[in-house]
């Protein structure tokens, strides 16, 4: 099974409003694409993402998402002003469908993502030497 990861730049995201951004992310997730955003989503956007996900869940095809925000928000006033003017939120957000992502876990020094890969029977046989 192939796994597609799409990396979306901060510039692309800056051109989108919250609703458009959520719809953009969910559209990819529903096509089984894992999305890596070059920005930390705002907490309200995360709540909107969860809400929109709940509306899209259906019994057979789509059971939800896993996501994780890695934040490196500006701490000082000068940095905050610069961030506000630039309209850019530093950090990254990883979002993927639960059918592909088993878990995203914070370890002390890194973030670990466990993906599910269904290897076709023929591949399994080759790898197992059968």
């Amino acid at each position: 099974m192939e796994i597609q990861l799409d990396f979306v730049s901060a510039e692309t995201l800056a051109r989108k409003g919250s609703a458009e951004k959520i719809s953009f992310i969910l559209d990819k997730i529903k096509r089984n694409i894992i999305v890596v955003l070059e920005e930390a989503l705002e907490p309200q956007e995360e709540a909107e993402l969860i809400e929109a996900t709940m509306r899209e869940i259906d019994a057979e095809e789509f059971h939800g998402i896993e996501f994780y925000r890695i934040d490196s928000r500006a701490k000082g006033l000068r940095e905050k002003i610069a961030e506000y003017i630039a309209g850019r939120r530093h950090g990254i957000t990883i979002v993927g469908p639960t059918r592909l992502i088993e878990a995203i876990k914070r370890e002390p020094d890194y973030i670990s993502m466990l993906a599910k890969v269904d290897i076709p029977q023929e591949e399994k046989k080759k790898k197992g030497g059968e």
Binding site: P43, E46, A47, I104
Partner: peptide
């Protein structure tokens, strides 16, 4: 349970915001 989950962070982040 491990408290460092995105759901926990999102809930607390929304209340803070």
């Amino acid at each position: 349970q491990d408290p460092y989950t995105q759901v926990n962070v999102t809930i607390i982040g929304n209340l803070e915001a």
